[in-house]
Design a binder for these strands. Structure first.
Lengths: 183, 183
DNA sequence: CAAGGTGGAAACCGATCGGTTTCCTCGGCC
DNA sequence: GGCCGAGGAAACCGATCGGTTTCCACCTTG
């Protein structure tokens, strides 16, 4: 086994918590990771800490799947995120943004994983704000918040309807960009 | 006891499932409702059926809290929904749209409660579409879907950030209405 | 007053929960 | 070769899970 128990645990946790919810038992988790419960409780203080750590670890990969490569106009770079999301909603295992899903399941706002979700969701908003600023928008922070709302609302729609977005997120974001004068 | 066991069960289920998630145990549920498990399993085939039934029962109340009274322009009637939502996000127990939250927690798209969520979420979209049509919008169905996306995205924002919307949903919806020419 | 149905209290079922502990095997390092 | 830490297997803890069953107290109706 070339990977460490810690890596295997975080990977398995990230996938299982997203696919089946944070209610997944520690036994099933450790079995999927090929790690003993003993090791898990040596590496993490509690299941809650593992939830937070796995979300923190998974988020960068999630961002990478959404954010655009270098180059392109701000408008195109922003729309790239919504096009990427549209593609994700067409995949069979899609269950919404992992950050939003976790925050929704963990009713406690003080849960360590909730702080992780807030921080990473802010990263997407920051990306939108930077692009809006580059485009010379009058109020880039407001536009960034609005785009984030469209992003998460699109995810919710795909989950509730259990079907792909079919371009609705892209067109909604486009309407906001047009209204803000982002050419 | 003037209420029936069925009513007490549905009320307690609607509140507990929203406040603590669908993972709440049947024991705690029955205790809160003042109903024996025996009666619960006579009235409902399973916990899953109870989840669906409680969501179906509670949804009309949610709608009533959001939808506007009679009168007013389509634009005002639509914005009333977002203003009402803004107020809800400021309340201490707010945990997002119950329909979206339930659909997110129940990873199974075939769960009976998921069909209930889809149906009631469609009711909100239908309201938006009717108002958009009354306003003479070119594509009322698309605008209605976009407004629903903004509604659910706003709810997600309030949950992840654990703070009130502070008008962001209203301004985002306003931007879409302006873009669509809804005066 | 008697009969029958409603529904609560509580025991019970096997399984699983989060978490702890014991034991033992393995591989690297002196 | 002997030692020591890492880490897997599994027993164990009390509590709780979804679900079933038994028993009995109450109310209504005749």
């Amino acid at each position: 086994m070339t990977t460490t128990p810690r890596d295997r645990l975080l990977d398995a946790a990230g996938e299982l918590f997203y696919r089946e919810g944070v209610g997944v038992g520690v036994d099933a988790l450790c079995k999927a990771a090929g790690v003993s419960k003993r090791s898990m409780y040596v590496l993490f203080d509690s299941k809650d800490e593992l939830i937070a750590a796995s979300l923190d670890r998974r988020a960068p990969g999630y961002d990478a799947a959404l954010l655009p490569p270098g180059g392109g106009t701000p408008r195109e770079r922003i729309l790239h995120v919504f096009r990427a999301q549209d593609g994700l909603t067409g995949q069979p295992g899609y269950r919404g943004c992992p950050l939003v899903a976790t925050a929704t399941e963990l009713k406690d706002a003080g849960h360590p994983a909730n702080a992780v979700a807030r921080r990473h969701k802010q990263a997407l908003t920051d990306f939108f704000a930077a692009e809006a600023r580059a485009a010379g928008v009058a109020d880039p922070d407001t536009l960034a918040a609005q785009l984030t709302i469209v992003f998460d609302g699109s995810g919710a729609r795909a989950v509730v309807r259990a079907e792909p977005l079919a371009g609705l997120g892209v067109t909604t974001a486009t309407a906001l960009l047009d209204a803000a004068g982002v050419g």
